Computed example of a mutant assay.
Amino acid sequence: MSRQSVAANRASYAAGPSAANSAAANAKFLEKKKEFDAVSALHRASALYLQRIEGLAADVETMADAGQIHGEVLEQWPRMFQILNLFLASRDSSALGVDAEPSPAPELGERLVRIPLAALQGDVEETSRK
């Protein structure tokens, strides 16, 4: 034979003055849970923000390295034009059959280079449409 539970017939211990304490504790618990959830969300957002900033820092370092290399290349252009001018001068003098010394190097910036901007801008517009 099975015996019936007497728990249903017992008076609740939660009733009475301790019920107010329990409700206050429950409200405090819910408040702390909301606070914990907010701090957790802030922590996740901060971690994501940190990842983005680190990615930007890596991009900036790459651009700084590229700028330094670009500067080194630009630094070599005047010397390259000087060498080309010496070559052209020696070619011209050998074509004339004159054994003269090559003319002194012209001033920097004497040779102009034309860049087809319209064609470059058309290429940029085509790639931006894709």
Rank of each mutant, 00 (worst) to 15 (best):
A47S: 11
K33N: 06
A100E: 11
G97Q: 00
E107P: 02
K32N: 15
P102T: 04
A15V: 03
L86P: 00
L108A: 15
A25E: 09
A45K: 04
A95V: 09
E107T: 02
D92M: 07
N21Q: 12
E35C: 01
V39D: 08
K33Y: 10
V73W: 09
R129V: 05
D59N: 08
M63R: 05
P17A: 02
D65G: 07
Y13G: 03
L117Y: 05
Q4M: 11
E126V: 05
A66P: 00
M1C: 11
D37V: 01
F81R: 00
Q68M: 14
P104K: 06
A8H: 10
E54I: 02
A15H: 03
S93H: 03
E126I: 04
L50W: 07
F87P: 00
N26L: 13
N9F: 15
E54M: 07
A47Y: 07
S2K: 12
L56C: 07
A20L: 06
F36D: 09
V124C: 02
E110Q: 12
E110A: 13
E61D: 15
G67V: 01
R91N: 09
A95R: 12
L88M: 15
L56A: 11
A38S: 11
L50I: 04
G97H: 01
R111H: 09
E107R: 03
V6N: 14
L96Q: 02
A19N: 14
L74T: 08
R44M: 10
A47T: 12
S94P: 00
E72N: 08
K33P: 00
I69D: 15
S90L: 07
L120T: 02
V98T: 10
L86Y: 03
G16N: 02
A105M: 02
F87I: 08
A57E: 15
M80E: 08
A20C: 00
R44C: 03
E35L: 06
A23D: 10
A118W: 04
A45E: 07
W77K: 11
I69P: 01
L108T: 11
Y49K: 13
A20S: 06
E31Y: 11
G122F: 09
V98D: 08
L48E: 15
A20I: 03
S5Q: 00
A14L: 14
Q51W: 03
R3E: 15
A27C: 01
A64H: 12
V60N: 07
A19P: 04
T127H: 13
A38R: 08
L30I: 09
G97D: 01
Q4A: 13
A105P: 03
Y49V: 09
A24C: 04
R79L: 14
A11C: 05
N9W: 13
R91D: 07
